[in-house]
């Protein structure tokens, strides 16, 4: 086969394919204003990527919190509480600590404990002078001691990995009871559903030398066994997830595609994977330019 033969063959076969004056003019116009659309396109892509990342991050965080919401609310769990000898007025007092509430408040997990004395002869029902939040009051050896927050709880459990920053509030009630509000400041507790707190040290942030308390807490029952799974549907990036315990089941779901446009093919709303070709339909503005891809067509009648 000779080169000229092949050239003639192709030119003859594709004779209808001509680079028209119209296309030439379009290209020249685009050369004139190429800087601006390129910048706009780059900005648009950056904007879309940022929004997608924010959306995905928000979804993931929301899913994480939904997964552990109310995982302690169904039951009260007894705790044993032993005072640290560093505090002379707290020696050997055994208390029962009850979880009375646990809920997510924004990014924080708040757990409310109710503390009772096991031996009323030693501590008379934790009488409170100031029935208000953010005060710790206890009666030991007939004395009333009031301290200010913040109190920091540091757990020693192997199962709780994100517990470096707990805050604790003590609420003294008029009925001579004490409720301890423990707020978990860490966010990543989604994998803590086999939640056990065998030992907790409580440190008074205002007075670290004398404020060490020592909790002895038995393991919590496995909350997973105490609920019926409430499944969040599967997506293309995660299988179905239990809203309560975070367990997963089954395989990944299908993609959730947006429609293709002239600048982007079908795109999954969740994982951003794309599929198929670009759409051939442009959206021309009155000026004859496609509002998406900025291609110019003089006959802006929505047909190419």
């Amino acid at each position: 086969m000779k080169d000229k033969d092949f050239q003639q063959m192709v030119d003859h076969e594709f004779a209808q394919l001509e680079w028209t004056d119209q296309q030439r003019m379009d290209t020249l116009r685009k050369m004139n204003k190429e800087e601006r659309p390129v910048m706009k396109r780059k900005f648009s892509v950056a904007l879309v990527v940022t929004l997608l990342l924010l959306t995905l991050t928000g979804t993931a965080v929301a899913a994480t919190y939904r997964g552990v919401t109310h995982f302690l609310t169904d039951n009260d769990y007894d705790r044993h509480y032993v005072m640290n000898p560093l505090r002379s007025y707290h020696t050997s007092h055994r208390l029962i600590v009850r979880v009375v509430d646990a809920h997510w408040d924004g990014a924080k997990l708040s757990v409310a404990y109710h503390i009772q004395s096991l031996d009323p002869n030693e501590i008379v029902a934790m009488r409170c002078t100031y029935p208000a939040h953010n005060h710790y009051a206890s009666q030991a050896n007939a004395g009333i001691i009031v301290e200010q927050p913040p109190y920091i709880i540091i757990t020693e459990s192997e199962n709780v990995h994100h517990t470096a920053g707990y805050m604790i509030d003590w609420v003294c009630e008029e009925d001579s009871s004490l409720t301890v509000m423990i707020t978990f400041q860490e966010n990543a507790l989604s994998d803590q559903l086999d939640f056990t707190i065998p030992v907790i040290n409580v440190r008074d942030g205002n007075n670290p030398e004398t404020a060490y308390l020592h909790f002895e807490l038995p393991s919590l029952p496995d909350p997973i066994a105490q609920h019926t799974h409430d499944w969040e549907p599967a997506t293309c990036v995660s299988p179905k997830v239990c809203r309560i315990c975070g367990r997963t089941d089954g395989g990944l779901g299908k993609h959730d595609f947006t429609e293709a446009t002239c600048i982007s093919p079908e795109t999954c709303r969740v994982c951003t994977v794309t599929s198929g070709p670009l759409s051939r339909h442009h959206q021309y503005g009155d000026d004859g330019y496609c509002i998406l891809c900025h291609k110019y067509y003089e006959h802006a009648d929505n047909t190419k």
Binding site: D11, E18, W19, R24
Partner: peptide
């Protein structure tokens, strides 16, 4: 522009 007139169609067929 001159090159487009001269070679546009040939490039178009090549790309096609």
């Amino acid at each position: 522009d001159t090159l487009m007139i001269q070679h546009g169609s040939r490039l178009l067929r090549l790309c096609a």
